[in-house]
Design a protein around this nucleic acid. Structure first.
Lengths: 209, 209
DNA sequence: AATTAACTTGACGCTAGCGTCAAGTTGATG
DNA sequence: CATCAACTTGACGCTAGCGTCAAGTTAATT
């Protein structure tokens, strides 16, 4: 079975034009809140205080509850623009690379790039807010693709046989948390560590790129 | 210079018998609080609520402030028993292994073992509470030893020349945070990942153990 | 321009943890 | 056994964030 046959993501689940029957002022607020949330989540992760987002949107906190039902609804409304779109693109790209090893290299590298620039991605990985449908969907798709790529790597003899998709997940979570907690490493350091990681899962007998 | 010539740790900075001029009941409380703190920190890390520790010690929260001056003082009073003693032993052991590669392997492996069983170690790594003298001392010593071991590994040609002590620190922090955030991995998974990591920093041309 | 449903909001009560202090209790000392 | 310094503590005020609601405002409709 190929559970990830179409990895391009859900057709269109978060329309830019929200619920139609919305009064003009409400629609304006929705747009402002979304924009503020995207900026805030980008800077501080998915647990940015709602009051802060509300303030940035020039709106009261209660309005966020009115329009989105709370944090999870808000995440649902912006996660696509924030993370999901990029993640689906990464998966798509990796699946297009024919060589199994290169495909995995592309996938890992791109994920880590995304992680470097987008703190919210780590929150998504951790499923801190499991009530967001978009997030659950994304996680499931990503899990499927990861498994697929690792398996192909095994079959081609390019990836250590004892390396699992779970190991990759663990490493990504660890890396995301370190990024969140430590002062940002230089890009050179970060990329070197990415290479170390890739090096560690390469099957021994073909350790040369 | 060999800044870590004596890595056995500070002579005796946290006597089991606390301040002498202490009334009997106060001394009893100190002992109970220390015991409770060690248990709590072991289970939940160094940011366990003080109220919880106080309750476990059968004492009011204010008494912890009276006896230890707050969280940092309390950490100072128990970190030796909790983490520092083990860490100093690990460093000592690593320095005694003659072969540079095996020495680094021992060091990394033992640190990760400690990390697996002692969440407080990660707090120590992160210096979440930088006011604890014991903790600062430990961190400085550990940094020195790590640098020493990595350098020896470089000189012996056993460790990739582009691998730095900072990389090791980053990896340890990342691992500790993942342990804290994720459900505990099986020991087998954990040890395998330790081996992957060691594998990643081994110089290419001698990748065989 | 009157009506009304949709919408917004300030203010509230809630939780969790911190750090402090006046008032009360108790161990040690003469 | 009286005294008093040492000690303990409940209760308090503080911060930060959550989620809710009655009362007020405003866009749409006729």
């Amino acid at each position: 079975m190929t559970p990830a046959a179409r990895a391009a993501g859900p057709a269109s689940d978060c329309p830019v034009t929200p619920r139609p029957g919305l009064r003009a002022d409400a629609a304006r607020n929705v747009a402002q809140i979304r924009a503020a949330a995207i900026a805030a989540f980008h800077g501080r992760g998915l647990s940015t205080p709602l009051e802060e987002i509300a303030a940035a949107a020039g709106v009261s906190k209660a309005t966020i509850y009115n329009r989105f039902g709370g944090r999870e609804g808000l995440i649902d409304a912006v996660i696509g623009e924030l993370v999901a779109a990029k993640m689906y693109a990464i998966m798509e790209k990796a699946r297009r690379v024919p060589d199994p090893w290169e495909s995995l290299v592309a996938y890992v590298t791109d994920r880590r790039d995304l992680q470097f620039t987008e703190p919210a991605f780590t929150d998504a990985l951790l499923m801190t807010y499991p009530e967001s449908r978009q997030l659950v969907l994304l996680a499931e798709t990503a899990t499927a693709i990861t498994g697929e790529l690792v398996q192909q790597g095994h079959e081609a003899g390019a990836v250590r046989r004892d390396f699992t998709a779970g190991d990759l997940y663990y490493a990504d979570v660890a890396n995301g948390l370190a990024l969140r907690e430590l002062p940002a490493p230089s890009r050179a350091d970060y990329d070197r560590r990415t290479r170390f990681f890739l090096n560690s899962l390469r099957a021994h007998d073909q350790a040369r790129a």
